[in-house]
Simulated assay, not measured.
Amino acid sequence: MTYELPTLNYRYDALKPHIDRLTMEIHHTRHHQTYINNLNEAVAAADIPDMPVERLIADIDALPESSRTAVRHNGGGHTNHSLFWQVLTPDSTAPEGELAAAIDRELGGLQAFREAFSTTAKGRFGSGWAWLGVDKQGRLCLESSANQDNPLMGDFAALSGATPILGLDVWEHAYYLAYQNRRPDYIEAFFEIIDWREVARRYHQASAGGHPGDSLALGRAQDC
């Protein structure tokens, strides 16, 4: 399998003023493409069987030891960015249906989620990501990861194994041209361009067969 750069569903300038055109173009065509190039080299060198990149990083322990670091960094980078582009939209949306009910029930409502997610994103020291995920019991949860690690990596990266449904890139290259060192302003802007329809689709897929809300304290954001 040769991994390829996904096509965006919007123009590079479509997310203005929240994310500028040049940042989007550099982020997509250079940063993301570099992860893909390096991942393809690593997979070819280790003769790894064809599989979706999400499965590749979830089963990273099964890979040859010599390829794990390269797959961790570059497979994680490809997976993370592929999700990130898909949960952005120039059109204003809001959580609805099952997802909205789960946010109310399990995270204390949209405002409480927003505050907790912002705290998670601000609290990630250095480069990394903030995540809203569905844990193995089908419940919504929050966590952050360093560098290009992804919750699917589980114990290998000291993470939960939850399925991410929303992710925010807090590497400086994601926001520095417009926001400089003002990460909190970038995080606030992110909430204006979330495609909650896509997040809901991912929630439905990830929680199928689970039991959202079981044994979860109400009104409080739950860490993964």
Results as ranks from 00 to 15, higher is better:
W196D: 05
L159S: 06
R30I: 15
T120L: 04
T119P: 00
S67F: 04
D185W: 09
P164I: 06
I103Q: 09
F156R: 06
W85K: 01
N147R: 02
E192V: 00
E54W: 13
G128N: 00
L39S: 09
T120K: 01
A44M: 10
A42E: 11
T93G: 08
Q86V: 02
H31G: 09
Y179W: 11
D61C: 02
R201F: 03
H27I: 07
T93F: 05
E188Q: 13
D185A: 15
G167L: 00
Y175K: 09
F117N: 01
L177A: 14
D169C: 11
S207Q: 11
S207H: 04
L5Q: 07
R201N: 14
A94T: 15
N9F: 10
T29Q: 13
W85M: 03
D135P: 02
L56R: 01
G213P: 06
E41W: 02
I194A: 07
E198I: 12
A112D: 08
G76L: 00
A157Q: 00
S118E: 03
E172M: 12
P95I: 06
I26R: 15
E4C: 06
M24T: 15
E198K: 13
R124T: 05
P95E: 08
Q137M: 04
S92P: 08
A130H: 06
H173W: 11
L99F: 12
H78G: 02
L5H: 07
D47A: 14
E115V: 05
D20V: 14
H78K: 09
T119G: 14
R139N: 15
N181S: 15
I36Y: 07
G128P: 02
N150C: 08
S118Q: 06
D47Y: 08
D20H: 13
I165L: 02
G77D: 01
T34H: 13
A121K: 04
E41M: 11
S92E: 12
M51A: 15
M1C: 11
D104N: 14
T69D: 14
K122T: 10
S118P: 02
Q86L: 06
S92Y: 09
N74E: 00
D223A: 13
R68E: 07
L152C: 03
V71S: 05
E172D: 12
L83K: 02
P52V: 09
Q33A: 15
C224A: 10
N9W: 09
R68M: 02
R220C: 08
D149Q: 05
A157M: 01
Y12W: 06
L99T: 05
W129I: 00
A44T: 13
A70R: 13
I187G: 10
W85D: 03
G126M: 01
V43R: 04
T93H: 11
F156C: 00
Y203W: 12
Q137E: 13
E65V: 05
